[in-house]
């Protein structure tokens, strides 16, 4: 998704419990409009109902992988929640949704 949505005039906010300095460097090198946000205590993850208790490799709490697309008015237009963490949304699908909004 990093590059496929790069020029769509869309802001991508990527949320995880990590501090993400290295991810942000990578995104800037790829000129992708990613901003990596640190949800250290998973408060936002919980507010979104996306906590996967002890789901991490080391038994730590992690977010359920999910993608939410908002239009310019902040209204949810599309969302997907993973039920297997190997599977992620196809970037082309997300790009299509974003293009339909504009």
């Amino acid at each position: 998704m990093l590059t496929e949505l790069g020029d769509e005039g869309v802001q991508i906010l990527a949320i995880s419990p990590d501090s993400n300095e290295r991810s942000q460097e990578l995104a800037e090198r790829l000129r992708a409009r990613y901003r990596f946000l640190a949800d250290r205590d998973l408060a936002v993850t919980k507010r979104y109902g996306l906590l996967h208790p002890r789901g991490g490799e080391k038994g730590q709490d992690v977010p359920v992988p999910a993608t939410v697309v908002l239009d310019r008015d902040g209204i949810v237009r599309w969302l997907t929640v993973a039920d297997n963490y190997q599977v992620r949304p196809d970037p082309a699908d997300v790009a299509r949704v974003v293009r339909a909004i504009k």
């Binding site: 998704m1 949505l5 005039g9 869309v10 802001q11 991508i12 906010l13 990527a14 949320i15 995880s16 419990p17 990590d18 993400n20 901003r35 946000l37 993850t45 979104y48 996306l50 789901g55 991490g56 490799e57 080391k58 730590q60 992690v62 977010p63 359920v64 992988p65 999910a66 993608t67 939410v68 697309v69 908002l70 239009d71 310019r72 008015d73 902040g74 237009r77 963490y85 997300v94 974003v98 909004i101 504009k102």
Partner: peptide, 21 residues
């Protein structure tokens, strides 16, 4: 600090939750 509502009226937003680590 980044606030979701600050993008209202400016651009669509894709919010991605991922596991990290």
């Amino acid at each position: 600090p980044v606030t979701l509502a600050s993008f209202r009226g400016r651009s669509p937003v894709v919010v991605v939750f991922y596991r990290g680590y």
